[in-house]
């Protein structure tokens, strides 16, 4: 018997045959949902090998390492109740955690609330850039929900839709998109002008496809304004939730797109790195979850012309939904996505 886990973090034991069968079921679920190619037998064997090893920790073979970007880096230690400023935090990411990039972020991780404090953010970024060598992103979430009541001026679509006020909800979304674009472009411009190496639009699509549209259009505008700006677009879920239902970008309806489809639009808009997401099903096993995660992310990486970095953390990318992800699952997901998923980074 081999020790593994459920998606909720619970420890379970399975035979090697059961683990392989669950990986296969996960692969099938991914191919069925996203309409993508399956993994080969060799790739499934490789995943089964990674997930049946008795080791507590599994790593890639030398030479198969990839680039690590970490969103929200400069506030994560603060969340651990460590009393630390953002610049020392970034320095720790560089010199202690061996991250390949780092990200400055405000604790209120949305573009809208950063607007009034932008000058302070610029100063902090300028200071950070003097003392770091690695590329530093500035990141936040588009967070379209902040533009509807009670946080914004538009009627709340989440309240309108259940009342059957579909047209009103759609119009609200369309107005919210314009405001979000304006804020994202404003903040990103200022932070780029402060010297940031890149801008991260994180958890894109969390309020559905209008959120995704706002990010795509903000990316387009920024790329036109600053041709050398680097933009990372990180998603919030494996498919784009359809809250409006009729929003298109480049002739494609944005609702319901899976990672291999999302990345093509991100490319079209001008994104430089795409952060794909595959959600965890907490009631299924980790082998099942990694089967579908690797299948979806590999399909995404195969069609992409830009680097693809998968999100691998609490509840995404084959890692259980727990605040302290166990190293057995985390390291295996990390290795599996590098070696079988053939990604460019995490």
């Amino acid at each position: 018997m081999v020790q593994t886990r459920l998606g909720d973090g619970s420890t379970i034991e399975m035979t090697e045959e059961e683990i392989r069968a669950d990986i296969e079921r996960g692969v099938e679920d991914a191919t069925d949902r996203a309409n993508i190619d399956s993994l080969s037998e060799d790739e499934i064997d490789r995943l089964a090998d990674i997930y049946t090893r008795p080791n507590k920790f599994v790593s890639v073979e030398t030479g198969n390492e990839l680039v690590l970007t970490f969103d929200e880096g400069s506030v994560k230690l603060k969340r651990l109740a460590v009393s630390i400023g953002r610049i020392p935090d970034l320095q720790l990411y560089e010199r202690a955690f061996c991250s390949d990039t780092a990200e400055m972020a405000h604790i209120d991780y949305s573009y809208k609330p950063i607007k009034p404090i932008i000058a302070e953010e610029q100063i902090e970024m300028e200071q950070a850039l003097l003392t770091t060598v690695l590329p530093v992103f500035y990141g936040a979430m588009p967070n379209l929900s902040l533009y509807s009541q009670p946080d914004g001026s538009f009627p709340n679509p989440a309240e309108l839709l259940p009342k059957g006020k579909i047209k009103e909800a759609q119009e609200a979304y369309e107005g919210m998109v314009e405001h979000a674009i304006s804020d994202m472009v404003f903040v990103a411009s200022k932070m780029y002008e402060a010297g940031a190496d890149g801008i991260n639009f994180d958890t894109t699509g969390s309020a559905g496809e209008p959120d995704f549209l706002a990010t795509l259009r903000a990316t387009e505008i920024l790329k036109e304004k600053y041709p050398d700006i680097s933009i990372e677009m990180g998603m919030s879920g494996e498919f784009v939730l359809g809250m409006h239902g009729e929003i298109e970008y480049d002739g494609v309806n944005l609702a319901g797109l899976y990672p291999h489809e999302q990345v093509k639009l991100a490319e079209k808009a001008g994104a430089d790195i795409f952060g794909g997401v595959v959600n965890i099903n907490s009631s299924e096993t980790i082998p099942w979850n990694i089967g579908r995660t690797v299948t979806m992310m590999k399909a995404c990486a195969e069609v992409a012309n830009i680097p693809v970095h998968a999100n691998v953390g609490m509840g995404v990318g084959g890692v259980p939904i727990v605040e302290t992800p166990p190293v057995d699952s985390l390291s295996r997901a990390s290795a599996a996505l590098a070696e079988v998923g053939k990604l460019d980074g995490l």
């Binding site: 390492e65 680039v67 061996c98 390949d100 990039t101 690695l134 430089d272 190293v327 985390l330």
Partner: peptide, 23 residues
């Protein structure tokens, strides 16, 4: 954990440089 499992190593090695070319 990620850094040990699959990371290039940042400024310990050449991860930051490879990241720059991706970006």
């Amino acid at each position: 954990s990620h850094a040990l499992a699959s990371g290039m190593g940042g400024v310990r090695t050449a991860g930051d440089l490879v990241a720059r070319m991706q970006m």
